[in-house]
Computed example of a mutant assay.
Amino acid sequence: MNTTTPQVPNNLVWAILSTLFCCLPAGIVSIVYAAQVNGKLAAGDIAGARESSEKAKKWAIWSVIAAVVVGILYGILIAVVGVMGGGSSY
């Protein structure tokens, strides 16, 4: 009889880092799912723990993607505003 619980990564570190450095709303969702993993494992809900782990990972990745897209759009906006300004100064 095997009584050890399987190792399911909670992805909490990635969730926290993506919240701090990337996209706050998606990062918070990632933290919520990451926080559920250990509790579900302790309750014996292995499938639920794996599902929460995958969702935490997915939301952390989406947080990073959102930050990259926003950064690119911001760079484009700054470039367009700089070109439209024409460099004329008084």
Rank of each mutant, 00 (worst) to 15 (best):
M1W: 02
N2P: 13
T3E: 04
T4V: 07
Q7C: 01
V8I: 12
N10S: 14
L12P: 07
L12G: 05
W14F: 14
W14D: 15
A15K: 03
I16A: 08
I16R: 13
L17G: 09
S18P: 07
L20R: 14
L20C: 09
L20K: 14
F21G: 13
C22N: 13
A26M: 12
G27F: 00
I28D: 03
V29Y: 09
S30Q: 04
I31K: 05
V32G: 02
A35L: 05
A35C: 08
Q36W: 03
N38Q: 14
K40I: 00
L41R: 08
A43D: 09
A43F: 01
A43C: 02
D45G: 03
I46D: 01
I46P: 02
I46E: 03
I46W: 00
A47G: 02
G48Y: 03
G48D: 05
R50E: 15
R50P: 06
E51P: 10
E51L: 15
S53E: 02
S53K: 00
S53P: 06
E54I: 05
E54N: 12
E54F: 02
A56K: 08
W59K: 13
I61M: 10
I61P: 02
W62L: 13
W62C: 12
W62N: 11
W62A: 11
I65S: 04
A66M: 07
A66C: 04
V70E: 10
V70I: 14
V70W: 10
G71S: 12
G71M: 09
L73Y: 06
Y74Q: 06
Y74H: 06
G75E: 12
G75A: 15
I76D: 00
I78D: 10
A79P: 05
A79H: 07
A79E: 05
A79V: 12
V80S: 10
G82V: 09
V83N: 07
V83R: 09
V83E: 07
M84T: 11
M84W: 09
S88F: 07
S89W: 09
S89G: 11
S89C: 05
Y90W: 07
